[in-house]
Design a protein around this nucleic acid. Structure first.
Lengths: 244, 244
DNA sequence: GTCGCGCATTAACCTACGTTGACTTGAGAG
DNA sequence: CTCTCAAGTCAACGTAGGTTAATGCGCGAC
């Protein structure tokens, strides 16, 4: 039987990426958390079209959020990392409009759906944070739309790699100039609206140019500054965000 | 001096598209609303990079939400219609990451930023609605990402036209098989990641095929079912949403 | 009226990316 | 150790959509 992480000991909330929690918030959080769920690689945390009974914070592991279109094409909407909130809008709107699939083993904090309303009633600060999280998410999606709409293949791939890199660095998951990269090239291309073949062409070229490379399920960043330039991302500090 | 609409008389909240408000909510809303702002065509309701001091609900008129990229390209993130909430995440995150530009004269209900926190403290139901709105918005953005990532030009244009059509029909703005369409083809192409030239090719073809046409600042829908099919949008009822 | 201007429309040409299909590599199963 | 299967890589060729640039057209200014 695995031991459940007490929120007090949660390794995530101390990360500089996240807004610190007050003692009172922490106390509420411990009661709000109903338990933990463990998912295997390939398992669906959320399934498109299914009602979902809970929202989750990813404690560890990674996943992809994707929509399957009627004609069988898949769009990856976003990559999911530790600290991300999953299922907010299925929780609010009733039915999941997308799937979330684990690409590594994933541990989730579970917050039952029917407690969300209590959170809004008794914990306005936490409710505010939830809206804040939704706003951050929306901001990223806007950036994604801009990337898909206006960038060419090279810029898109560079953008995705830099975004993933920065997020994992902020989570202190960088070791020896590399971060875990459990996504397949197929996931990347489904996220960027490119064919796998062309995504691969770009990745090979970026590697040849000494900018970054993917090898052994890890992303090795050789030249963050130059790759950011290719991606047209400035070097601005990532904003902190709340965590549930 | 223009007369300010009392929330009690607000023509929007009665529309079937929106979740009805309780008397108590309505009472709060009247105090929450600080006033109205009128914008001219071309004016910016929100400017990318500027701090914004308020959030707004669009009472009437239309706008586009867009990002200007460093190299001068513009991505239209979404089209804004009456009932939409504008500036939620600039309000929460401090600085606007995108611009919102009026494409018709626009009337806005103004909610000062510093009252948002009071809303969360005293009106959990309204706070919940705000999160709900953010979730609906996020859902649409996800659909946009999927459209830009996986659809070809014809499907994209059809998708945009159907989305706009349905929203304006839900707002009861349809007359004689047509709705107002104040957007330029340039706006459409910036939203869909296409060149104006190609967008025009598609529009001309859709018109020739008797599906829909844009003429005289109006969108005439000749065959909603068939166009929806082209857009790969099913005929599902649009969900209701709250309004602030 | 007619001038000026932003927007829609069209045609000719070109390229970035998709498609198909074959080959390689590597990791886990037995 | 080697078999298998999924993922990565690569080349050849085709096409959707970009680019450029010219023309048409309504509409407000005066």
């Amino acid at each position: 039987m695995p031991v459940i992480t007490d929120c007090v000991d949660c390794p995530l909330r101390r990360q500089p990426l996240f807004v610190p929690m007050s003692d009172e918030e922490l106390a509420f959080q411990r009661r709000f958390k109903a338990g933990e769920t463990h998912m295997q690689v390939g398992q669906e945390i959320l399934s498109q079209g299914q009602a979902s009974s809970a929202i989750y914070t990813v404690l560890s592991g990674m996943a992809v959020r994707s929509i399957m279109l009627e004609d069988g094409q898949r769009q990856v909407i976003s990559f999911i990392f530790p600290g991300d909130l999953v299922g907010l809008h299925s929780g609010i709107m009733g039915e999941a409009r997308h799937s979330v699939t684990a690409v590594t083993p994933v541990v989730l904090c579970t917050f039952p759906r029917n407690r969300i309303w209590r959170l809004f009633k008794t914990q306005p600060a936490r409710a505010y944070d939830m809206t804040w999280i939704a706003a951050v998410e929306e901001h990223f999606l806007g950036e994604t739309v801009a990337t898909l709409g206006q960038r060419d293949a090279t810029q898109r791939v560079a953008w995705a790699l830099v975004r993933i890199w920065r997020r994992l660095v902020a989570l202190r998951m960088e070791t020896g100039g590399a971060v875990p990269f459990p996504f397949r090239q197929q996931d990347l291309s489904d996220a960027l609206g490119l064919s796998v073949v062309h995504t691969n062409r770009v990745i090979v070229r970026l590697r040849g140019d000494g900018l970054a490379e993917i090898s052994g399920r890890r992303l090795v960043m050789h030249d963050h500054a130059r790759l950011s330039q290719v991606a047209r991302l400035d070097m601005e500090k990532d904003d902190v965000r709340p965590i549930l």
